[in-house]
Simulated assay, not measured.
Amino acid sequence: MATSRLRGERSVRSLFASAAAASSHGRRTISDCSNSTFLAAATLARSEDGPASGDESVNRAFEGLGDTRAFYSEVFDRDSLDGQGMRLNAYVHYGSEYNNAFWDGSEMVFGDGDGVLFTDFTKSIDVIAHELTHGVTEFTAGLQYHNQSGALNESMSDVFGSLVKQWVGKQTAAQADWLIGTDIFTPAIGADALRSLKEPGKAYNNPTLGRDPQPDHMSKYVNLPDNDVGDNGGVHINSGIPNKAFYLAAIGIGGFAWEAPGHIWYAALSASTASTEFQEFADTTYLKAGQLYGTHSTEQQAVLSAWKEVGIRISGVRTLAGTATRMRQAAMTNGNGHDEDSSDVARQIEQLSRQLAVLTKEVAGLKSKSKAH
């Protein structure tokens, strides 16, 4: 498939992870490769305090890095990708007709596209933010790049890439298109986007690219070999499932998706480990929603419903809900089977609701202990 050209660079990220520069509050430097693939030979094109360039690719890269930096700073109080002011270095005009953009663990690299399938990769803010978010994931959960943890890795980049675009455009969840990479296809291709969080599997369908293979439900999960040919176990394909869950949660909560939904997902990412898979991540988003916005809050219920709709049931919720029902039923009737005074019933229901909240916290504690071991 032609979109395979957008893969294959992620594996080199870990080789450069230790190359992060000292804190500089995310100062930007853009260099021009002049169609070479030898980064060391690139020339400085624009710096943080320098003037705008006459090259629009340079300026778009500069602004894209700045918008992503500002998003993480203002929304999550995060100082650059590593949280400690890591410099943001980028290279444009990489290679000849290079159909990709990637984050290698220390810098961003942009190709110009071949002019047939793709155009300049600096044109898409969500693609820029997607790639930079791989850096954020590397410095938080460090999600392993294969199978479900790898699909979560890709999903985090799609989710926050889309949020950066929405944040820049001040769009609500209902107004956003939820598409990734709408600006990098050439007009002749006739594809809507690389991926759709709203409708995984419907981003494109044409003779050149084929049909978008992303599933939107666990029943359609695609099992692929954990190698380059198999997209490391389908990391770009199965990411459609958690992508759809985030979209549904954002629509269920309403308003700006970078607010409650974004904070829930960011908190869950920060609490995840390298081997976290879909079920554990879903459980964590539910628990974080409760911690941030309250047990049984609109936000927590939206998260619960979103994961259920993509075929993932939050662990323990059914048991807790059943316990709550039985407790409320017991509160409605005294030991002799007679109805109690309504005020007494109300007090008992309130007390039992608090007990349910304690049970929820205990579940969260158990999960934390299991991670520690």
Rank of each mutant, 00 (worst) to 15 (best):
P242I: 06
N227W: 06
K288H: 02
D344P: 02
R328Y: 10
K244R: 15
N334Q: 08
G240S: 13
A321R: 11
F246K: 01
Y293M: 13
T333W: 03
Q348V: 02
S343L: 05
Q301C: 03
E309I: 02
W258P: 09
G230Y: 04
S297C: 09
V310H: 08
Q348A: 03
S315Y: 05
L352Y: 13
T284Y: 00
L352S: 03
A330E: 13
A274H: 11
V310D: 08
I349F: 01
F278Y: 15
G316C: 06
E350N: 11
F278M: 14
Y247W: 14
Y293N: 12
F246A: 12
A257H: 01
A274W: 02
T319L: 12
V317K: 02
K244G: 12
I253L: 08
A346V: 15
E299G: 10
A306T: 04
E299D: 13
L287W: 03
N238V: 12
S342C: 04
I251C: 07
I314H: 02
Q291K: 13
A357G: 11
L356P: 00
H236T: 15
L320D: 09
W258F: 09
A274I: 07
Q300N: 11
K288R: 06
T285N: 05
A282D: 08
I237W: 00
T273D: 12
F278Q: 10
S315M: 07
T325I: 11
G230V: 07
A245I: 03
R354W: 05
S353Q: 12
W258I: 07
D231T: 09
Q355S: 04
A306Q: 04
G294Y: 10
L356A: 11
I241P: 04
N243Y: 01
I314L: 06
Q291C: 08
T333M: 08
T273M: 02
Q291G: 14
R313W: 01
T298Q: 07
N227D: 15
N232E: 13
T319P: 03
Q279L: 14
P261V: 04
